[in-house]
């Protein structure tokens, strides 16, 4: 019984320490505000998602929080911010998209990856059409 109480006390202390450290990290404003700077940066991020991926067409979100890319084989990739880094997915037939003027919302087949809404300006319609072709 004493041993079990000791274990519970250790877990409680660990939980308190975890919440304290997460609070400190937030208070210190760690993480920063990372954006896609330009097409060169987007290319580099795309290569990190899929080694050897060479986009021939790139649409950057106006605020730099994500991008859509297409390579010579017609594979389309979405990049989006994830914390202080970026993550991406190759889009497949399960891709959902919704166009609202300049804003294109994309949902991948990976539900945990979530949806991303990109402000692509006047390129949004063209990319929306491209995404519809994948789903067709």
């Amino acid at each position: 019984m004493e041993g079990a109480l000791g274990e519970i006390a250790k877990v409680a202390a660990s939980l308190a320490a975890i919440l304290f450290l997460a609070w400190v990290a937030r208070q210190m404003k760690l993480g920063g505000d990372i954006r896609i700077r330009d097409e060169v940066h987007a290319r580099q991020l795309a290569d990190e998602v899929l080694c050897g991926y060479e986009p021939v067409d790139i649409a950057l979100d106006k605020a730099g929080i994500g991008a859509l890319l297409r390579d010579a084989q017609g594979r389309q990739m979405v990049l989006r911010r994830h914390g202080a880094h970026f993550a991406g997915r190759i889009l497949d037939r399960s891709t959902e998209s919704r166009l609202d003027q300049n804003f294109l919302t994309i949902g991948t087949s990976d539900r945990q990856f979530g949806k991303v809404t990109l402000n692509l300006g006047d390129k949004a319609q063209i990319w929306a059409a491209g995404l519809r072709r994948i789903a067709a």
Binding site: A17, A25, L30, G83
Partner: peptide
């Protein structure tokens, strides 16, 4: 500052 991210830290410590 980008070496830490509060949500990532919370997840890591939750793992621990």
């Amino acid at each position: 500052p980008e070496k830490y991210e509060p949500r990532d830290t919370l997840t890591s410590l939750g793992f621990g």
